[in-house]
Write a protein that binds this DNA or RNA. Structure first.
Length: 288
DNA sequence: ACCCAGGGTCGTC
DNA sequence: GACGACCCTGGG
């Protein structure tokens, strides 16, 4: 654990604001100077883009270059992906210009599961607050630049929390879900290691759906935003339903739009890049 | 003050 | 399949 720095020059498809504000992660905060500081694994890191260079600096558990390449998905050609998606139609093209610097992070599977269980029927400021409080109470402290940061607790660490403890941290009705899912994973009723090695996406989804608090939407977010990295899934939430209805379906009452219809449409139009398309559309619709 | 929505899921009908 | 309930918070 030592302070390190890594710089990418002439970077393409990398905008910190797009990456950290597109709804895939909850532990990155904008600093006064416009940079972002976040915690992932046992790393505390600051990311800033200056001109066309990205500067990563922080306390890392290993080699910072290797850690960044993995976490920020740096070896993937997003230019190529964006070119392909832009051909689909003008809507997608516009959304891609808007969120041109989005990258899908390789987030820890366990942390992603718990984070998106907490996201259910919740808003982003509150989700971030809950995850911060959980980490402060059950994670490990890391000091950097006079500040204290807290890692997201492991399943073992989080198993110290009772349902009442979780309720006190503000989880609301999600307390039992987090409590029971933690135990199911600790007992290996659902083996995260097996999920990581399973090639069949449907099998992984089915296993995730057995976890309390994980329904179709949360399962798809876990598949897309964690190291499981399934770009073909298409998480449908209120925002995505809204944008898909506005762009294609045009039902006067968006709440009446059939989820199956959206799934079919997404698959037809976006194919195995549906998850990426979802992120550009989500960011575009939510910010604009 | 009051109401509503927020990256849904679960139990019940 | 379709409802309604669910804990809590910020914004209108």
């Amino acid at each position: 654990m030592k302070e390190q720095k890594y710089i990418i020059k002439d970077v393409q498809s990398f905008e910190p604001i797009h990456i950290f504000e597109c709804g895939q992660c909850f532990r990155w905060d904008k600093q006064i100077d416009g940079s972002y500081t976040g915690i992932f694994g046992n790393n505390v890191m600051n990311v800033v883009k200056q001109n066309n260079n990205v500067i990563f600096s922080g306390i890392c558990d290993g080699d910072i270059e290797k850690i960044c390449k993995e976490y920020f998905d740096l070896d993937r050609n997003y230019e190529k992906i964006k070119n392909e998606l832009s051909k689909i139609d003008d809507n997608v093209k516009t959304s891609i210009i808007y969120g041109s610097g989005i990258r899908i992070l390789n987030q820890d599977l366990w942390e992603t599961i718990i984070s998106f269980i907490i996201s259910a029927n919740n808003n982003i400021p509150r989700i971030k607050g809950i995850i911060n409080r959980i980490s402060m109470k059950y994670g490990k402290e890391i000091k950097w630049n006079e500040n204290k940061y807290y890692t997201f607790p492991t399943a073992e660490e989080l198993s110290n929390a009772t349902v009442g403890d979780l309720r006190a941290l503000g989880l609301g009705f999600r307390d039992v879900r987090v409590y029971e899912t933690t135990r199911k994973i600790l007992n290996n009723e659902v083996s995260l290691e097996e999920l990581k090695n399973e090639n069949d996406t449907e099998k992984v989804r089915e296993a995730l759906l057995t976890l309390p608090g994980v329904g179709p939407k949360v399962a798809d977010c876990i598949l897309l935003f964690s190291t499981l990295k399934r770009f073909e899934v298409f998480p449908i939430d209120v925002w995505v339903r809204r944008v898909m209805n506005d762009l294609y379906i045009k039902n006067p009452d968006e709440t009446k739009v059939n989820k199956r219809e959206i799934e079919k449409l997404a698959k037809e139009k976006y194919g195995d890049l549906a998850g990426l398309a979802q992120q550009y559309l989500f960011y575009w619709k939510r910010e604009a």
